[in-house]
Nucleic acid binder design. Sequence first.
DNA 1: GCTCCGTATTTTGGATCCAATATTGAAAAT
DNA 2: ATTTTCAATATTGGATCCAAAATACGGAGC
Lengths: 220, 220
Amino acid sequence: MSPDEARRRPPTAQQFVLAELRRAITTGRLRPGAPIRQDALAEEFQVSRVPLREALKTLQGEGLVTYEAHRGYSVETLSLDDLREVYRIRQLLEEEAVRRAVARLTDADLRRLAEAQDEVERAATAGDVLSMATANRVFHMTLFDCAGMPRLVRMIRTLWDTTDAYRSMYYGDAGNRERVVKEHRATLDALRRGSADEAVTTLNVHRDHAVAELEPYLNA
Amino acid sequence: MSPDEARRRPPTAQQFVLAELRRAITTGRLRPGAPIRQDALAEEFQVSRVPLREALKTLQGEGLVTYEAHRGYSVETLSLDDLREVYRIRQLLEEEAVRRAVARLTDADLRRLAEAQDEVERAATAGDVLSMATANRVFHMTLFDCAGMPRLVRMIRTLWDTTDAYRSMYYGDAGNRERVVKEHRATLDALRRGSADEAVTTLNVHRDHAVAELEPYLNA
DNA sequence: GCTCCGTATTTTGGATCCAATATTGAAAAT
DNA sequence: ATTTTCAATATTGGATCCAAAATACGGAGC
C-alpha cells in the first residue's frame, strides 16, 4: 500500500468500509433497492462481516439502507416523493441554520466562505464534477457550521448524504455549474451585508432549482 | 421465560439489547458521560458483544451515545444548549408535520387521535408517569404520522428519543400532567376545526413549557 | 398444470477467540 | 518531587466458526 493510501485509510475497518459503502451507494454502483450481500461485499473490501455490519448499521441510521431482521440490508430507494421530502426538510433546517449563522458571522467566517467559493469556481471552470460537488458541500457546510448548532448541522449533513448519488448528475451540466457559481456569489453578497432574508431566499432558489433538475432522473 | 416475555422479546439479540440500552440510558441508569463497558453490559444482558456493538451503532446514529475509535462508546451528555437546540429543531420539524397533517386529516384520523387522548387522560388521572409518557408520545406521533412524511416523522422520533430521559421527570408533577391534558384538548379542538395555525401555536406553547420546566434539571 | 410440503442451500445472526490499541502503574532518570 | 519510559493490563476491533432463519428447489399430491 502506498504511504498516501496508508495515511488516508481510516484507523478502523468499519470506518473504511463505511466510506467505501457510501461511495458505492452514492455513485450508484450498488443500485437502489438491491439487497446487500454481506459475504460478497466483505470479500470485495477485504474485511470480515463484523465491521461491514457495523458500517451498515450507521448507514441504516442515516436512511441510506433499510434493514429487516433475518433478511438483511438493502439500498434505500429514493422515490420522487422521498426526494421532495428530503429537500423540504432541508429547506426548514437550512433556513434556521443560515439565520443563526448570519447573526453570528465574523470576518474570519466570511474569509473562510470566500475561500470555499474560490474552490467552487476553480472546479466549475475546470469542469471537474467531483471536485465541484465536494467544494460546493464545503461551502454550504462552512456556512451552516457558523450557526453554532452542531446537531442541526449533523442532521443537514445526513440529508445531503441521502441525495449525494443524484447531486453529481446535477454538476454534469455546464449551465448548472455556472448557475451555482452565480448563486453562491449572491449568497456571499447577502451574507456580507448581513441580510438573512436575502441569503435564505437565494439559497431556497438554489435548492429548488437543483431538485427540479433532479426530478427527471428519479423516474428512471 | 414466560410466554409473555417470549412474545415481547424481539427476534434478534441486537433489537433486544437496543431496547434495553435505550431504557438504561433514558432512565439514567447509565449516567450521561459514563463510558460504556462492552464486556460488562454484554454479560448483564446475556448476549455477546457483537449484537451489543450493533445496537450501540444505532444509538450513535441517534445521538444517544458518542463513539471514538479504539476508545469506545460513552453516554452522550445533554447540555442545556443541546436541550434547547433539540427543542428548537423539534419546533421547526413538528410545525411542518402538523401543517401537512391538518391538510390531510380524515375523520378516522381524528378518531384515532381522540382515542390516544383518552389514554393520556386515563394515565394522567391515575398518576401513572410511565404510561403518561408513552400515551403522550402515541398522541403526538399519531398526529405527525398523518403528515404522510415518513422521513420527517422518523427525524422527529429520534429527537424525542434523545430527551426521553428527562421527559419522565416532567410527568412526575401532577400540575404538569393536568396541563398536558388541557393542551392536548385544545390541540384536538384546533385540529377538528382544521385550524393549523392554532394547532401549531398550542403545540409550541406545550413544548416550550416542557423545555422550561426541564431546564433546571440539566444543571445538576 | 398448479399447489403444497419438505429438504437443500443460501444468507444472516451471534458467540468465541485472537489481534491491535489504549490505559494504567511502577520504576528509573533528571 | 517531577517527568519519562516501558511493561502489564484492560478494552476495543476484527476474523472465524457455528447456529438460526429465510429462500430456493424439487417432488408428491391433486
